[in-house]
Structures are given as structure tokens and as C-alpha cells.
Design a binder for these strands. Sequence first.
DNA 1: ACGGCGCTTGTCGGACCATT
DNA 2: AATGGTCCGACAAGCGCCGT
Length: 322
Amino acid sequence: MARHRACQLLSHRRTIGKLRFSRFPSRKSMYQRWLAAFHAVARSGGFTAASKVLNIGQPTVSTHVSALEDHFGVELFHRRGRRVELTATGRELLTITEGLFGREAEAVELLRAVQARETGSLRIGAVRPLDIMEICARLLNQYPNLRLAVTLVSAADVLNGLLNFDFDAGVIGHQTNDPRFFSSFYKRYRINIIVNINHPLTRRRSIRIKELEGQRVVQRTGGAFNRALNDAGVKIKPVLETSSLEGVVAAVMQGIGVGAISDSGIAGIKGHQNLKVIPVNDLAMFTEAHVVCLAERRARPLIASFLRHADAGTRSLRKGKT
DNA sequence: ACGGCGCTTGTCGGACCATT
DNA sequence: AATGGTCCGACAAGCGCCGT
């Protein structure tokens, strides 16, 4: 015990020695603490007042300011009895620390605002607009000052965007088992056939899946329609592949081939006179919406809010069905 | 004389870092 | 990852100085 005390005393002496005479402080934070003490004393006009501002003991403030003065061999304050006055060097240093700690206060203010969702931005990648806009609407309803940027791309681009930190969150059409991502089911939509009104199938109210055998088909990259055709053993003629729903719709409008569209996408083509949507009556084909983000970023405040609002949508959907 | 303030001294405990 | 040594910031106590 006595030896321990002796060691600590020795350590302390070495500390004081280093503090006062070493060329550079051994820890980065030392300058910051010394400058913070100086700044508080300069702004509050006294060591005791500064200690209250900094929420530390007055001796500590005194030590820091002395350490700063001794370390650089300068005088920052004139001690006139109980009063302290800035020296010319002190006044010059204060103009710098005003900027330094002013920016720090600004930074803390920003972080507090983001924490409270009073500001902040979220970049979202999505495979189709409807789901994501639903979630965005709910999010903006609660946090009106958020800025959201939505980019419509393929599922692969959404996932790559998350990995590259180009997106904070996303909505894709399938669940991902990649452990780098967190994904959560959002909604399921039925898939229908979409044809140009000049196509022979346009007079039909519904069709059987086998009737697509040999048809020229416009496919969406990685789409659920492709997998459904494959599972049903229907051999089609793939003529064009595109990454977006808009691409499929435009191709079908040009009469390039038969396409597929989910219930959620139908609203978006209502104005197009030369398109016809036909349900498939013997096979239930579905596409799903899953919200995704990087697993390691799942707890980040804005991303967590996004996931929560997506989850709220899923819950209200379940409630509506029962 | 008293209260307020800053400084010094002695001590403690947490953080850091090298070693195992 | 755990451990032990070292470093460093912080505090309490006590002192002297100064203004009222």
C-alpha cells in the first residue's frame, strides 16, 4: 500500500514535470482542455466562474491555464488581486478560441437537431415509387423538416448503394439473406400481365399462365415475374430486359412484347390509353417489398426512424386485413 | 474580521498501452 | 481478452491575498 502511494506520488511528479516542461503534450486532448479552460476564464472573467461553466473544480481550471502559459512560456492573464485581465496575447488567443468553440457549439447544436429529427437528410434507393412514397409520407408527417432523396434503381443497385454509403436505406422486391444487410418485409402485391392494346391478348379478361408460352416478353432485371415463369415451366421469348418499371411500360407501349406489372404499379399507368392490364387466373404471382439497410447502420437514428415507419405501415396493413 | 478568489499540495481513479 | 504498469485529469483541503 505504502509502495503504491509512493509510486503514484512519483508518477504525479513526472506528470507535473511533463506537463510543464515537455515540448509537446503527450495527448491530443490536452491542448483542447487547456484552451477550453482559457476560453472559459476569458469569457466568464474569473477562474471560479469558469469552473462552474466547465463543471470542474476551480483548481483544475487554474492548473490548465497555468499549464498553457508555462508550456508556451506566455502570459495570458494579468492577475490583479481577485481580478483577472486578458493580456494582449490572451486577447489575440480569445479571438481564435471564439471561433474554435463557437464552431463546436454549432456542431453540437446540429447533432442535437438531427437527434431530435428536427433536421437531417436520408438518401433512399427503391425499385418502385409507391411503397417508398408511402413510407416517406409517414416519415415526413412526423418529422416535417427532414430532407429525403429517393432514387429509383434496380434491387442490385439499391444494395450496392447501401454498401457504398450512397444510400442510407432502401426498398427492394425480395428478401436478402446477405448478413451485411438488415431487411424487413413490408408488403406483397399480385402480379398481372400488361399488353399493348394491339396485342392479340388484349381482348381477354384473364389468361392462363401457359398461354404465355412462346410469347415475346419484356423482362425486368431480377423480377419476380421471371422467376414465376421459370417455376411454372413456361418457355417465353425474352426480347428485352430493363431495370425499371418505367422501362417495361415504355417497351410494352411500343409493342415490343408482353410485360408484367404489380397491383402497386397499376395506378401509375392509368393515363396510358394503349395499355391493358390482364390478371392471370390459374397462378398467383406475387412481388414483395422489403425495406433494407446496412446491418451495422440499423440503429442510426434517422435509419431507425425509417425502419420504424415502414414497420408501422406493415402493422396497419395486417390490422386492416383482420 | 470576514468572505471570495486563486494557488499549491496530496491523493484518487479512469484511460491508455504494452505484454501475455 | 485479460492483466498490470503508467499517465493524466480531477478533486479536497488548506493557504495566502485582497476587497469590503
